[in-house]
Amino acid sequence: MFEAKFEDGGLFKKIVEAIKELVKNVNLEANGTGISLQAMDTSHVALVALQLNEKGFKKYRCEKSLTMGLSIENLQKILKCSGNDDQITLRTQDEEPTTLSFTFESKNRISEFQLNLMSLDQEQLGVPDTEYSSVVRMPSNEFTKICRELGNINEAIGIETSKEGIKFYVKGDIGEGQVSVKINDTEKPEERVECEVDEPVNLSFAVRYFNLFNKASALSSQVILSMSQDQPLVIEYIIEEMGSLKLYLAPKIND
């Protein structure tokens, strides 16, 4: 028996919205500690990892670990039948469920849906706990804007960190550009820029993945970029009181 109730159903919709362009079919894992999801994008360049802790739910029960294979596209079709202010409950009775039930509750109506599940034998990747040599925390809408603007100049974006801060740069056919974001300790947490740089990094990434993933900025006003030289970068959106949504992106290596 599994039951998980989102107090804020809109949050669940934003999570699905953020990953729907990156992953197609995913295994949703549920156990006593909460719900998790890990899936590579179709080109196997990025890995999406979601972790939602049971304490963050209005109601949560999971007597036995469950794996529920679902199509994100079909999940979205069901979620489009819910309102952004609805409470959303996920439920299944069986130990080997073939469907996942959804209840959408608002003041004046209650809806019930069932999503057919599928069995996916997807390889799960072991993501080692890593001490990153550069960790940058900045406003998520600022990061989104920089990626979108520089992404118009070149499909690869360079990221260079130093004690002074973080620099994004592009060198394309039409020309080049760079944006240096300065550290600030403003008292407004959502506008703060913090850099912890033990070792500076200089890495290059395909910016299209950032632009696809940055829909997640609706989840959090801040984004955390964790980097080490020649390692995948992690973009993390903290989901207040619940957990986090992460994107691991492999770097581009100069030939």
Binding site: M40, H44, V45, A46, L47, E123, Q124, L125, G126, V127, P128, A206, Q231, P232, Y248, L249, A250, P251, K252, I253, N254, D255
Partner: peptide
């Protein structure tokens, strides 16, 4: 050249 994510993380 674009690396694959699986080359960094072993499948568990």
């Amino acid at each position: 050249m674009q690396k694959k994510i699986a080359s960094y993380f072993k499948s568990s």
